[in-house]
Amino acid sequence: MIAKGLYKSFGPARVLHNLSLSVEPGKTLSVAGRSGCGKTTLLRILAGLESADAGTVMFDGADLGGVAPEHRNMVYLNQEPLLFPYMSVWDNIAFGLKIRRLPASEIAARVEELLQRLGLSELGKRMPEQLSGGQRQRVAFGRALAIRPSALLLDEPFGSLDPDTRSEMQAFFLELKSHFHFTSVFVTHDLKEAIRMGDSLARMENGSLRQYHNLREMVSDENSGLKNEIAFWRKLISDHES
């Protein structure tokens, strides 16, 4: 996935400014950045849910300009799981398959396999309001992965979870990634999460994005905040030891 020279403004507010990025197939690009730096707008443009004022988005060599979101096969995952409230867990996961009119037997097989992998085999008949936050997010992942997407665009997907569930979901994401080998852009304001989730790293600030070649380069960037983070933990450890 390649984005080149993206610009986006909402009225006088400049949100993206000459933004470029690239993600290798099957890899995850973590994008760290503060709230309001344009991360969500970037993901929406990649998903086709928002149009850029200028710039191009390419996937697998094809220009996605003008391609509607429903034809991109890229699933945008919000911080909120956004499960359809009147559908059971089973029907939520089957949604993308049903609208593609796949044979019932194939839908059943894919949904059952996903339910098992998501650890939700016993919860297929439950309604979304009967699930915990972590379970809902798992269903949202299942619903996205059921359609075998070309890419996942994750907008702080674990942002609303408590620390324990968040850590559990991070491990769950890595497990899914090693099994399904999907390409993804993972947006978060948590540096630790960005490093844990990403194969490559980037940082957004004021609508611009800097993509790092490796973690060392990100650490050496004074603006990334990683040096401060490391210094904080080092001090805490040394205080604790002394």
């Binding site: 429903e70 919000n78 359809f84 949604f95």
Partner: peptide, 15 residues
């Protein structure tokens, strides 16, 4: 929320 649901469904491939 309803606008986000609409967008979510579009992202999942719904016309």
């Amino acid at each position: 929320r309803s606008i986000a649901m609409d967008r979510q469904a579009a992202s999942l491939g719904a016309t």
